[in-house]
Design a protein around this nucleic acid. Structure first.
Length: 270
DNA sequence: CAAATCCCCTGCAGGC
DNA sequence: TGCCTGCAGGGGATTT
């Protein structure tokens, strides 16, 4: 489940596979919700273009092309970018870009098809991007405090709201709340400024550790070369319901918050 | 506007 | 062995 660290690890790994290369062919599966821009249009717009840079905005990857247009990629739950040098296309490979230099293709594979592809004309934007809050790597306690104070929802729900901050998903939200010793079910507006400071530091810390470990490989995340991340080995609470808390030994509790499973230590987190 | 709910989709684990 | 059910969850759409 790609969150900011996994998307950033992917971006770094795939930059060399995209930037500076001229697209010569675009192969896709049939039209579906995966394609916000129809396959036919994608093909027409991308062929002949040179990729100039690849950025990450929250959990989105944004490739800028030499005509000023942009290609948005979102990995959803199970999206993977692969080099054709590491894996052959299969039934779940929905987009394949080939290049003029005849080097490896870029494969976008997504078993569950929660991922998205969209082409943006020059100067055009996308509400998905426009609404994103500040990047989670630069989040401050002050911003969290100002955002949380108006919300009655659980703080965990607010952390997952990409309009508040962009990049945090279920795994890193649970881990950051543990580091900050804040219970995920707490009403957001009940958090003090001090707690928001701790939470902001916790978020940045788990995201940086996640990137350093190459991301969390639970079921689906792989790097484009086929390698996997190892941050799952450092998870303190995520996915550990029933196991002892690494800090105090109390059994970790698992609850549902907004249909998402959430794990926390009832003793350490208040 | 905020919050709650449903839904998209498919692989996999667990139960029988 | 094989079938069925439930679960995983990012995020958009819809409803309250």
């Amino acid at each position: 489940m790609p969150e900011l660290p996994e998307v950033e690890v992917t971006r770094r790994a795939v930059t060399g596979l995209l930037v500076g290369r001229r697209v010569t062919a675009v192969a896709t599966t049939r039209p579906s919700a995966f394609f916000l821009t129809p396959p036919k249009t994608l093909r027409m717009r991308l062929e002949g273009r040179v990729v100039q840079r690849l950025e990450r905005l929250g959990k989105y990857l944004v490739a800028t092309l030499d005509d000023g247009s942009r290609l948005l990629l979102h990995l959803g739950m199970t999206g993977q970018l692969w080099s054709s040098a590491a894996r052959a296309p299969d039934a779940h490979t929905h987009l394949v870009l080939s290049f003029a230099d005849r080097g490896p293709d870029l494969l976008f594979r997504d078993a569950r098809k929660f991922g998205k592809v969209r082409w943006l004309a020059p100067g055009k934007s996308d509400p998905r991007l426009d609404k994103l809050g500040p990047d989670a790597l630069s989040i401050t306690g002050e911003h969290l405090f100002q955002s949380a104070r108006r919300r009655t929802a659980a703080i965990k729900t607010v952390l997952l709201d990409q309009k508040v901050l962009a990049g945090v998903g279920n795994i890193y939200a649970d881990e950051a709340l543990f580091l900050a010793a804040v219970k995920p079910t707490r009403r957001a507006r009940s958090l003090t400024r001090i707690e928001c400071d701790r939470l902001a530091r916790g978020i940045v810390r788990v995201l940086e550790a996640g990137m350093a470990a190459g991301g969390s490989s639970i079921d689906d995340f792989v790097r484009p070369d086929g390698g996997s991340g190892s941050y799952q080995d450092q998870h303190q609470v995520y996915g550990r319901g029933g196991e002892p808390c690494p800090a105090c030994g109390q059994p970790i509790r698992r609850v549902l918050i907004g249909q998402r499973s959430s794990c926390f230590c009832p003793r350490c987190q208040r």
